[in-house]
């Protein structure tokens, strides 16, 4: 579903990504971990069609980026630590707005169903600004999956969530994964979400340093490997 080959991105003369190769099968859930400045966000923003690569090939669903960005966009959903919602609109209005942007049919029904799925139907008429962090994150997921995207991109989704909210997010993500969506999550936090994914990838200084099948390794083993690969030389 996602193919990245020899991806390079420079900010001015400063290289952020230096030849990243990464493939995601359809339906696969991959977590990309790395320290601050490793280039995680840049990588995600390139896949999200928000940044153009300096060099290398990136394709989503067979369409090349950035040339065919317009085609890729309707298959992408994004959840970030930023709400990506309008705080002064109600939950219902936010979703209706996105349904209209994506020109979805049965917008009203879809919005209703999405709100029910994330357990916010009762708060439909309340503005997002009045929501707790966890509720905002649930609504963000409802928004990101409203148009049934094949690819879901997650940018540090656990930031600022308490224990309960994290568990709820775990459940929602597991369900999205079971629905067959290809998911790429980036995080610097090794305590969340690792048990959900199929594969974990370590990005260090703009390069893939390590890849492992998530089920074949224990968290403490992974922590050791992670420290080894990201240590400053």
């Amino acid at each position: 579903m996602i193919k990245i080959e020899g991806l390079t991105k420079n900010y001015g003369t400063n290289p952020v990504l230096r030849g990243v190769n990464l493939h995601l099968q359809t339906g696969e859930f991959v977590t990309l971990v790395g320290n601050n400045g490793a280039g995680k966000t840049t990588l995600l923003r390139i896949i999200a069609t928000l940044l153009s690569p300096t060099a290398g090939q990136v394709s989503v669903g067979g369409w090349a980026l950035p040339k065919q960005s317009a085609r890729v966009r309707q298959h992408l959903g994004m959840v970030s630590h930023q709400a990506l919602l309008y705080g002064d609109l109600t939950a219902g209005e936010n979703l209706t707005f996105f349904a209209r942007l994506y020109e979805l049919d049965n917008a009203e029904k879809r919005v209703e169903r999405a709100l029910k799925t994330v357990g916010l139907f009762a708060r439909k008429r309340d503005t997002v600004a009045s929501f707790s962090r966890g509720m905002v994150q649930r609504l963000t997921i409802a928004r990101a999956t409203l148009h049934e995207p094949e690819v879901l991109l997650l940018d540090e989704p656990y930031t600022g969530l308490d224990q309960d909210a994290s568990h709820l997010l775990d459940d929602l993500l597991r369900r999205e994964s079971e629905n067959g969506r290809t998911i790429l999550m980036i995080t610097h936090d090794l305590t969340h979400g690792l048990n959900l994914c199929d594969r974990t990838v370590i990005l260090n200084r703009g390069k893939i340093a390590y890849e492992v099948d998530s089920q074949s390794i224990t968290p403490s083993q992974f922590l050791k490997i992670y420290t080894n690969h990201t240590r400053k030389k």
């Binding site: 999200a48 966009r73 994004m78 990506l84 309008y86 705080g87 942007l101 994506y102």
Partner: peptide, 17 residues
């Protein structure tokens, strides 16, 4: 500023519009 808050602009840019 409305588009800046919560990085809402990103969602507009990611939409197929």
């Amino acid at each position: 500023a409305v588009e800046r808050e919560n990085q809402a602009m990103d969602t507009l840019l990611m939409a197929p519009i």
